[in-house]
Simulated scan of single mutants.
Amino acid sequence: MKISLRRVAKYGCADFAPVRTALREMGAKYVALEHQTDYIFVRPDADGGRIKVRDEGRGSCLIYVYARSAKESEIEFDYYEFRDPQLVSLLQSLYGEPVVVRKEREIWSDRELVFHLDQVAEVGQLFEIEALDQAEAAAAQPYMEKLGPLMRGRLEGSNEDHLRSRKRNPSVSSIQADKSASRFERQAKQVTAILKSSPLLEKLLFEAPRLGLRNYYIGAGCIAQTIWNSMCGLPPEYGINDIDLVYYDPDLSAGKEERVARQARELFAELPVRLDVKNQARVHLWYERRFGYPIRPYRTLEEAIDSWPTTATAVGVRADGRYGEWSVYAPFGLDDLLGFIVRPNKAQITQSIYEQKVSRWVALWPGLSIVPWNSD
């Protein structure tokens, strides 16, 4: 299959939280969160020729065959899908060592415009706008005007270029020096360092991948409360009643969810608090019965977290075993969490639910700054 793609703009980005807000306001929709590893091989038989193998952890690989050109913003490539696990090794024997690009890609879209919020290992945070043709590229102008002030500046070149530049000068990233990592990256490292030092969460964080869940997070109150305890000099487990482990599985049967929950409880039987395991794909089936009003089904795990009651607790963390790194999903950023601020997220909850939570938290952590429900 032959595909043409136009990259409208590429930026360095310090903080994705305001970008997500702006995308929502302009009508873009969240699509998916993907973990991608690209193996880029140089073809000496073709001028600027490349073969890119993309592994998204789904059992098959996507193959892109293309040629580099002076006009990197416009590219035409042949596209294939393979299920041969030896493909990368075969290409390596033919073309030598590839450039390996590892990234977490958050995808949004608005009609034929596609937006990528990328966290690229050894490069940094990047934001891209892509379109399928020139006409759609023109439609990106309002987005560029809205989002431009949130960026660190326009970038040229591919991730391959930035990684090669990094290898030539390993002390400085092609996007930003380590000491000037994005605000969110610095905050995420601070958060994960605290969580990993918690006796309550340490084993859960490191061993949860053994459950074999393709997409999961440990999140919500246990994350925020562990951070608050650290900031207040309190015991790590203080005030924590349960731990939320959430995942997303299209199988909506209660039996499947219970099997996953039982497996998790057996694996972490020594936890002194309740482990609450929920498939977010089926929350809409019981939400009205518990809270008195219906909600629509969540399309993704991240969409579920987007609806959680406060900006400080709308956080999910997991170990990314493939990269030896950590994934932190925080749709509202981490400022409120680290700033000891509780602010309502009115996407789904009611005022009474918010105020019930706040009253308990203030009694346990009296230093919290509470934003009233009707503050705006």
Rank of each mutant, 00 (worst) to 15 (best):
R274S: 11
M231I: 05
A264H: 06
L234C: 10
P250T: 13
E270D: 12
P309E: 02
Y217A: 08
K256M: 15
P294H: 07
Y216L: 04
P236R: 10
R265E: 11
I240A: 07
V246R: 13
G321P: 04
L252R: 12
W326D: 09
G233I: 02
L267N: 05
S253N: 07
I227H: 00
P236K: 12
E258L: 13
S253L: 07
E325F: 13
V273I: 15
A269E: 03
R259Q: 15
P294S: 06
V317A: 06
D306A: 09
A254Y: 00
P294C: 03
Y293H: 02
V277H: 01
G333T: 07
R322A: 09
A281N: 11
C222Y: 01
N229T: 09
A261S: 02
G219E: 04
C232A: 15
V283K: 15
Y247R: 10
T310F: 01
P294N: 08
G333S: 12
E303I: 10
E237R: 08
G324Y: 00
G219I: 00
W228L: 11
M231K: 11
S327M: 15
L285T: 03
C222I: 06
I223T: 00
L267V: 02
A224P: 01
S307K: 13
I243Q: 00
A220E: 05
P294Y: 07
D320Y: 14
R259A: 15
I295Q: 13
F332D: 07
I240Y: 07
L252S: 04
Y247C: 06
I243W: 03
Y293F: 11
E325W: 08
P235L: 14
V283A: 09
R296I: 02
G292C: 14
Y298I: 08
R289D: 15
V315A: 03
I305N: 01
L252V: 06
A261F: 00
A304D: 05
Q225T: 01
W326I: 11
E325A: 15
E288K: 08
R299W: 03
R274Y: 14
P331N: 01
Q263Y: 07
W326V: 04
P272C: 04
E288D: 14
L275P: 04
R282C: 02
D335R: 15
A254G: 12
P236Q: 12
A330M: 10
T226V: 12
G292N: 14
D306F: 09
T311F: 00
R274K: 15
E302L: 09
G316L: 12
D249C: 05
D306L: 04
L275G: 02
E257M: 08
M231G: 05
D249Y: 04
G324N: 05
L252C: 01
L252E: 12
L334C: 08
V273C: 12
S307E: 12
